[in-house]
């Protein structure tokens, strides 16, 4: 965690330009220092102003199909909802069971990745109680959509950061371990006890989806003398099933030239 004065970070925090650690630092300080919180929140008006951009620039208008496609989806989900029984509707609407959102303000908008609802026992029971497979399927689709919406919503609260333990191969080192912190915007591999990649070589991160060949990333790194290393993988891990790391020439490769030293199943 940064040791900077949190006040130095207010601007970056409001603009969504902090690192994850700095964001957490500011949030933590807001909880314990009311005047600091007030100062941060005094910039909400600026954040809201920045969101307002001219709407009548030449040719910058919503496409004609945009409303139709949005409303078709909305009306389809509303129809499914209407077809549900009263109890079922109550269960769907009771989305407040998920962790309550924090304010949809600048301070919660960056970094994003907040708002992962835990599975709801009530919702699970509701699903189990459904007797009509067709209706269960339809309602399940709605509920999944609702939950996904809650997860993906940038302004939501809670946290969808999760940590996954990976597997290492013997070549990585006798005591090697790896964990991956998966967040919405970026993920971080944390290695310990690894052998160095080798002279003129770097570790390279690969992303694998299904049975497709691993796709190269430009993330190249090495561990330090104690075998510890961190690699930040930008972007959303949506659609990625596995993260692999191989030792490659220091400029990186387009296809893996060695066997993976680690494997993290997302």
């Amino acid at each position: 965690m940064s040791t900077d004065d949190p006040r130095d970070l207010i601007g970056a925090f409001v603009l969504g330009a902090c690192s994850v650690e700095e964001h957490a630092q500011v949030r933590a300080h807001m909880k314990v220092d009311a005047s600091f919180r007030a100062e941060v929140e005094s910039f909400d008006v600026v954040h809201d102003a920045l969101l307002e951009v001219p709407t009548t620039l030449d040719d910058v208008t919503p496409g004609v199909d945009l409303k139709r496609s949005v409303m078709e989806q909305v009306q389809a989900e509303a129809s499914l909802f209407a077809a549900a029984s009263t109890g079922e509707r109550a269960a769907i609407v009771s989305r407040q069971e998920v962790p309550a959102p924090s304010a949809p303000r600048a301070s919660t908008e960056a970094p994003r990745g907040t708002g992962a609802p835990a599975p709801s026992p009530r919702r699970n029971a509701f699903m189990a109680a459904l007797t009509s497979p067709a209706r269960a399927t339809a309602l399940a689709a709605v509920i999944v959509a609702l939950i996904v919406g809650g997860i993906a919503l940038g302004g939501g609260g809670g946290s969808d950061v999760r940590e996954v333990n990976g597997q290492v191969t013997p070549v990585a080192g006798a005591n090697a371990t790896v964990r991956m912190v998966v967040d919405k915007d970026q993920s971080r591999l944390k290695l310990s006890g690894f052998e160095k990649a080798g002279t003129g070589r770097k570790y390279q991160v690969w992303l694998k989806s299904g049975d497709a060949a691993p796709k190269p990333t430009t993330v190249l790194f090495d561990v330090d003398a104690r075998g510890n290393g961190t690699a930040t993988v930008p972007g959303d891990m949506k659609g990625v099933d596995d993260v692999l790391v191989t030792s490659e020439p220091e400029s990186g490769s387009q296809t893996p030239t060695t066997d993976p030293v680690l494997h993290v199943q997302i």
Binding site: R95, G149, G150
Partner: peptide, 9 residues
């Protein structure tokens, strides 16, 4: 669509 699906929050 995200707002539609998350309005209860």
């Amino acid at each position: 669509l995200s707002v539609w699906r998350s309005a209860a929050r």
